[in-house]
Each structure stands twice: as C-alpha cells, then as structure tokens.
Design a protein around this nucleic acid. Sequence first.
DNA 1: TAATATTCGTGATAAAATTCACTTATAGAA
DNA 2: TTCTATAAGTGAATTTTATCACGAATATTA
Lengths: 217, 217
Amino acid sequence: MSAKTDKMVTVPKAVINRLPMYHRFLYQLLLEGKEKISSQELSQLMRITSSQLRQDLSYFGEFGQQGYGYRVETLYQAISGILGLEKQYTAVIVGAGNIGRAIVNYPGFSRRGLKITGIFDNNPKNIGSQVGNLTVMDVEHLADFLKKYPVQIGIVSTPVQAAQKVAYILMKSGVRGIWNFAPIMLEKNGDVVVEDIHLGDSLLTLFYRLNEKEGKN
Amino acid sequence: MSAKTDKMVTVPKAVINRLPMYHRFLYQLLLEGKEKISSQELSQLMRITSSQLRQDLSYFGEFGQQGYGYRVETLYQAISGILGLEKQYTAVIVGAGNIGRAIVNYPGFSRRGLKITGIFDNNPKNIGSQVGNLTVMDVEHLADFLKKYPVQIGIVSTPVQAAQKVAYILMKSGVRGIWNFAPIMLEKNGDVVVEDIHLGDSLLTLFYRLNEKEGKN
DNA sequence: TAATATTCGTGATAAAATTCACTTATAGAA
DNA sequence: TTCTATAAGTGAATTTTATCACGAATATTA
Ligand SMILES: NC(=O)c1ccc[n+]([C@@H]2O[C@H](COP(=O)([O-])OP(=O)(O)OC[C@H]3O[C@@H](n4cnc5c(N)ncnc54)[C@H](O)[C@@H]3O)[C@@H](O)[C@H]2O)c1
Ligand SMILES: NC(=O)c1ccc[n+]([C@@H]2O[C@H](COP(=O)([O-])OP(=O)(O)OC[C@H]3O[C@@H](n4cnc5c(N)ncnc54)[C@H](O)[C@@H]3O)[C@@H](O)[C@H]2O)c1
C-alpha cells in the first residue's frame, strides 16, 4: 500500500474526475489485447503527462513495477475496484422522453453494473408504452414502487420544471444518488449525491472556444 | 474595460467552464423577473463564493456597480456576448440514433442559436425517416452535403467504432468544431475544436462518490 | 553474471485556481 | 446634503493541482 493512502490524504477532485478516463482507456487497451503499458505510453494516448498519471494512481496504491510498467489487466481491475464497478447499482428513470429512452437503450451502462428497474412518466401517451424491456409506469406510483423495490440511484430526465419535485420524491424514497440531466441545480434533502449532466453547458463551452480561436486569427 | 482584459491575461479554463453556469442562472433570474442581484446573492444560489464570481467576471470587464450590484439583464447580455450567443451556429448530426434524435428534438439548442441543417446515418432503416423536421440522409452523402452547405459544427453521435471515421470526414469538410458523444478521444486533423460529452464517465464518477460516502460511515 | 536501460513512486517545486481582505464607488437613509 | 451601509473590483495570500526530477527497483542485454 502506498504511503499516501496510509496517511489518509484526501483524493483531489481533479483526480476523481480522471478515473473514468483511465478506466475507458484501459478497457480499450484490454480489448486490443495489450498486456503491458508504461506510464509514458499510456499518458501519451490520453494526452496528459506521465507524472500526472503516476501521481494520480499513487493516491490509491502501487499498481506498477519499476523497469516494466503496468499490466493492463491488473491496472484495469484496480481502477474498476476504486470506482466500485464490481458492485451492482440499481436505478429508476423519471422522464421517459428522449434522454430517458436513450439511457435505457444504451448497453454500455448495464455493462458497467447499472440495472434499471423502472421508468416513469406523467404523460398518458407514454405510460404503458415499452422502453427496452421496461413498461413505462405512472410517476404517481413512483414513491410506492420505491418503497417496495428500493434503488440506489434516481435518474432525472424530466423537463426542468418537474425536475426538483421529482428529485424530492426520489430523495424521500431513499435513493443515495441522483443523476440529473435537467438544467437546474437541485436542492438536496439529506446527504444524497447529485451528479449533473449539463449538455447545454457543454455546447456553450464549444461556442466560446470557437469564437476564442476566431479572435486569435 | 478591466485592467485584466487590457493586459490580455488569458482566461483560465476553469473560468470558461463556469460561464455557461452563469448564463443558466441569469436566464432563470431573468425569467423570474429579478432586476438586480449582488455577487453575494448570486453566488449563494450557485453555491460558489462571491469572490470567485467577481474574480471570474473581472476577466471580461466590469459589469456591476459598487454599492448596488449587477443588473440581471445587463449581466445576462454581457455573458451571452462573451459566449458568442448573438451569432447563429450551423451544425449537422451524424448518427440518427437515440442521442442524435434527442438533440434534434430538444428546443433548448435552437433557442441558444444552434441550427441543425442535416442529420445522417448509415442504417437503411433510418435513412429517409423523419427526425423533427429533418429527413435522415445517407452518411455516404455527408461530404457532398457539406461541400454544398458548409456548417461550423459537426455533432458525432454514432457508435464509438464509427466515430473517428465520421470525425475525419467532418474535419476534412471544414467544420470548425466537433461535439462528440462517443466514448473516444478523437484524433484531430487541423485546428478543429473538440468538445466531448462522456456520459459514461459521469456515471462512474457518481458510482465513486456513492462508495466514498459509504466508506465514511 | 554484470552492466545498462527502463520506469515506477514520490518529495519538492511550480503553476493554476481560489479565497481573502482592502480600496473605492455609490446607493439609499437621515 | 451628509452619513452610512453596501458591494464591486482587484492585488496579495492561500490552497489546490500539476509537473519536475531523482532514488530505488526491476527488466533486459551483453
Ligand atoms: N434532449 C437533449 O438533447 C437535452 C439537452 C440538454 C438538456 N436536456 C434536458 O434533459 C431533460 C430531458 O430531456 P428530453 O429531451 O429527454 O426531454 P423530453 O421532453 O423528451 O422528455 C421528458 C419526459 O418527461 C416527462 N415528464 C414531464 N413531467 C414529468 C413529471 N412530473 N414526472 C415524470 N415525467 C415527466 C415528459 O412526459 C417527457 O416524456 C430535460 O430537463 C432537458 O432540459 C436535454
Ligand atoms: N445513449 C446513451 O445513453 C449513451 C451513453 C453514453 C454514451 N453514448 C454514446 O453516444 C453515441 C450515440 O449513442 P446512441 O445511444 O445514440 O446510439 P444509437 O445506437 O442509438 O445510435 C447510433 C446511430 O449511429 C448510426 N451509425 C452507425 N454507424 C454509422 C456511420 N458510420 N455513419 C453514420 N451513422 C452511423 C446507427 O445506425 C445509429 O442510428 C455512442 O457513441 C454511444 O457510445 C450514448
């Protein structure tokens, strides 16, 4: 074990945000059948510095071997473990619109251990319809459903106007995390973890960067 | 004008990434009819410090008034201008699947000046079908289409296996920015701006944070 | 087996980002 | 009109993040 983990140094946020990227690249390397890789080589693929890669990993332990590098398989497993991917996570989706459907239909999430157990909507047109192998339920039954079948994660993909209300129901019903797609900063209720996806913000950042470049020419 | 902009200090990345959040909150305040706001009050809504807010804005100019605060309208317009939202942006989407359709159908983007002029796919089942008021075209015609009707932005929402190939076509055809939804680090070709949305990474971050909390109890 | 080249892990240093704390301006009250 | 409270803007200090650079371990070659 590394000195750093022994000393209980808190892991910087910036490091945590890079863990999924490491996981993604290692998964790719694994698919390609690559057995070993050095911090030098891996960091070049990721367009970061090798020292950043080594420093980041050092927060969690020692996974490589001097003079050799890292075994791709070992490092992949280690990072999977750090991220908690050996566990299964259960979730419900609220909002069976475009985003809600996209999530259900995306196979990548179940591969990573996410099991979606229910999808809810308030529109009679959607209620009862099939999304993947789930039947859309009435959001009126959300709290009851969660009482019977608790889940860890609530996915909010309703329009922004409904998002806070829905989030409160989820939090009251005991979800521990919310994955939020609505462009709103959700008020918390208890110690739930909220992870936001703000697609609009990402687009505006792209706009800014396009103009920035223009200005320099 | 602020001293900082005069001196041509480069704007930190972290600041740029917060601009869309400012825009989002100010838009909300505008809808609510709020006329003025102090850095104190606005920063509390955003859960940042007031000095960070003031420091961030100072990279672009002086938008407030001492002893008074900021006019919501003025600041909103200023940030819209910084982000380049007065302009129209044209884009094509490649990959008429769940994400591609979600983007076309989302009204928030056209409100921000994004005009989607074409959507492409390689699956005969999708080609010719209607998405919003666009007809899905064959990706074989993508390069020709862009020669006739150039756009600034290419949106990549194909499966990861096709993403790089599609991105090269877009870049060759002169797009200046790529908004990428595939879980891959795209190789660039020229000085195109690539903005990634890695939904999977966000989910893994949520997983990590859920476990982190558990460990502390 | 010995010599040499790799490459990790990490303490130290540098850079970037955030917060502090103070000056100045001005709004609003007396 | 004067006084007081508010609040922006900003240089400086602090904190956080990233990079450097080197010692120690190991692989590989001669
Ligand atoms: N689609 C995009 O590209 C995009 C981009 C940026 C942000 N978003 C955000 O993601 C969220 C979902 O977007 P979308 O495109 O899937 O929207 P959508 O309109 O396709 O789907 C929203 C669904 O939520 C349902 N709904 C409304 N009120 C509800 C309630 N109270 N309880 C349960 N269900 C309810 C609607 O019936 C609808 O089916 C929105 O908040 C949107 O702002 C989407
Ligand atoms: N849906 C999600 O929740 C989600 C989550 C994480 C990542 N993503 C990523 O977003 C991207 C899009 O996801 P999606 O769910 O919309 O996938 P999807 O399978 O629904 O849609 C992909 C579309 O691309 C088309 N396509 C395939 N090859 C093509 C090519 N060469 N040229 C043009 N079109 C082509 C397919 O026919 C399909 O219509 C994928 O890269 C996926 O990994 C999606």
